[in-house]
Design a protein around this nucleic acid. Structure first.
Length: 572
RNA sequence: GGGCCUGUAGCUCAAUGGUUAGAGCAGGGCGCUCAUAACGCCUUGGUUGGGGGUUCGAGUCCCUCCGGGCCUACCA
């Protein structure tokens, strides 16, 4: 039994996430966590809301609420939705927690002690009307290069030229539109990532089994231009972790907070501590997952994220850990994903284009979405959601192949033998062949799951379901029963046991349907079918079962057309 | 501009440089009647984006052109 620490990139607090966000981190992380638990490993699966930063403050202001209150509410909303999608976090924390404040400040203190923090005095734009410093991209103006009048302070989206906010002609606040701006001198802390470049480079080089997507992004940042740059880790905001050197005040940093990307990854650790607190456990309960000197030596740590998060997880956060000089657990494997597009374009939170988590659950159960999203996960390149594809995949895979199999087996048994596992007959060559083929395929499925090859695992699982139908067709108990009821009984007994095995191995993908299958089989035995021969005898002759409700109803053409229309434009 | 990823059947995707490029869906044919008009079997379908090169051998490696996407460090 291994110990596996799994974290999903933490979703930002300012609204409900869309399906692209879900499939890029939380959902595959959940698949892996569920599989690893099913195999008997000790798993710690952590996620949280990422609550700090300018966008959170603006979203709260827009909602007319204090930012603390806004975040608390949105955290509950996201927590509920995660539960709705059956995301099996051991803890869903908050980056605004006291645990995170303390840990973030401790890391900063250690980094300062070890000489990895420098103070830099710089000029930033302050907006009197907004009462805040403005991040570069919150300043708009006319591009000096191409004349585009909505260029942002960091880059002109029209001509792609990199800009400095002071380059803009007629600059204004993107928040209020105010032109009452002032360049002010302000002091910030920088993390000296450049000083750790070689160490990070060697560390990345040692990760030869990581996805290309992960390592190529890291390499680019390490070697591009003058190499890895130092990074500002403080901001002039109110909402965040106050800048402190451990537990001490940081002279000159009064009123400033740490940059959200400095405190967000630390929340992985803090959320584990929050978990221990919620369980009423002591410090050692969470430290054994994170401290190499307190039991984490044998932990395997896997992170899941979309490609936009890769630089922070391959460079900034490891630099924070390495620079602390303390024995914190570094990530062992980073599984990163490309983007999911929506029907010919991008999902858009601002335009309300695409399907969002709450909307998805309002029209269909979680398993439908889980199955489609995971079986089409954007692992090698961006992939695309279309309603036609969704309807076809879900109807065929879930309703026809799996759902109908359960239905035909249970209903046939009920009509010929009653609602108990029938007695009599023996397994013959046909059954032996089935068991052999299934064993091979289950081993392949396990290998794909171990390797986090999500689409391949889904494809193999589907093939395993198909074999059940092939067997029934070949065995034809509905014919055999007329001449040899004992033989038909043995065939049906096998098929019923197959349903229980399918519930066990399908559970990581479709937990609700799996539970319904297990429940219908009157069993609570979720043991993984390491020995399939034995697993197919778990339900003995005479064992009672029930015929379940239809597991997956089909999506009609009318529904598909209506949803296609409803989610094409502006979110209501 | 630079870097990276990607282009394979109508659609979604496979294929350590090594037989005749494979699956699922869709299309066509046959079978079955237990089942959610479900299932099974057979089958049509390819100049692997274009061109050039390396090699005994290229979907795979190199060059070039074309298309799609991402990143480019103060949104997170």
């Amino acid at each position: 039994m291994a110990r596996i620490l799994i974290t999903s990139a933490i979703p930002y607090i300012n609204g409900i996430k869309h399906l692209g966000n879900l499939v890029g981190s939380q959902l595959p992380a959940d698949l892996y966590a569920r599989y690893m638990r099913a195999r008997g490993n000790e798993v710690m699966f952590i996620c949280a809301t990422d609550e700090h930063g300018t966008p959170a403050e603006l979203a709260a202001a827009k909602a007319g609420k204090p930012v603390e209150e806004y975040c608390a509410e949105m955290h509950e909303v996201q927590k509920e939705l995660a539960a709705g999608f059956r995301l099996s976090f051991d803890h869903f924390g908050r980056s605004s927690s006291q645990r995170n404040h303390v840990l973030t400040q401790q890391f900063a203190g250690k980094l300062a002690e070890n000489g990895y923090i420098t103070e830099v005095s710089e000029k930033q734009v302050y907006s009197h009307a907004d009462g805040r410093f403005l991040p570069d991209r919150y300043i708009e103006g006319t591009c000096p290069n191409c004349g585009y009048d909505r260029a942002r302070g960091d880059q002109c989206e029209e001509c792609t030229k990199q800009l400095d906010p002071t380059d803009l002609i007629n600059p204004r606040s993107a928040i209020s539109g105010s032109t009452d701006l002032e360049v002010r001198e302000t002091k910030h802390l920088y993390l000296r990532q450049s000083a750790m470049r070689d160490q990070l480079d060697q560390w990345i080089d040692s990760k030869t089994d990581w996805p290309i997507l992960t390592t190529s992004i890291a390499k680019k940042w390490l070697h591009d231009g003058e190499g890895l740059q130092d990074r500002g880790i403080t901001r002039d905001l109110h909402w965040g972790v106050p800048v402190k050197k451990g537990t001490e005040d940081w002279p000159g940093m009064e009123g400033k907070v740490f940059y959200v990307w400095f405190d967000a990854p630390v929340e992985y650790i803090a959320a584990t501590a929050e978990w221990a607190d919620a369980q009423g456990m002591d410090e050692s309960a969470w430290r054994r997952w994170w401290r190499l000197d307190e039991g984490a030596e044998d932990v395997r740590y896997v992170q899941f994220m979309g490609k936009d998060n890769v630089p922070f997880h391959t460079l900034s956060f490891p630099a924070t850990i390495m620079g602390s000089g303390e024995p914190w657990k570094l990530v062992d494997y980073i599984k990163s994903f490309n983007y999911l597009n929506y029907d010919g374009g991008q999902f858009s939170t601002s335009l309300g284009r695409g399907v969002f988590m709450d909307q998805a659950l309002s029209i269909l159960p979680a398993d439908y979405w889980r199955w489609w999203l995971l079986s089409h996960a954007p692992e090698n390149s961006d992939s695309e959601f279309t309603w036609e594809n969704f309807q076809a995949s879900v109807n065929k895979d879930l309703a026809d192949v799996l759902g109908n199999l359960v239905s035909r087996v249970t209903k046939f048994c009920r009509s010929k033998f009653g609602e108990v596992v029938p007695e009599g007959g023996e397994f013959g060559p046909q059954e032996a062949a089935l068991i052999e083929e299934l064993t091979t395929r289950i081993r392949t499925y396990e290998a794909h799951m171990e390797a986090m090859e999500v689409r391949k695992a889904a494809s193999e699982l589907r093939a395993i379901w198909v074999i059940g139908n092939e067997y029934l067709q070949a065995a034809a108990p509905w014919s055999v029963v007329k001449t040899d009821p004992e033989q038909a009984a043995a065939q049906v007994r096998l098929a019923l046991n197959l349903i229980r095995v399918y519930a066990v191995i399908s559970q990581p993908f479709i937990p609700d349907a799996a539970a319904a299958m297990m429940d219908a089989m009157g069993s609570t035995s979720w043991d993984w079918p390491v020995d399939l021969q034995a697993a197919l005898q778990a339900l003995p002759a005479g064992h009672a079962f029930t015929v379940p409700e239809v597991l997956f109803r089909k999506i009609t053409d009318e529904e598909r057309a209506e949803w296609q229309q409803r989610f094409s434009g502006i979110r209501n």
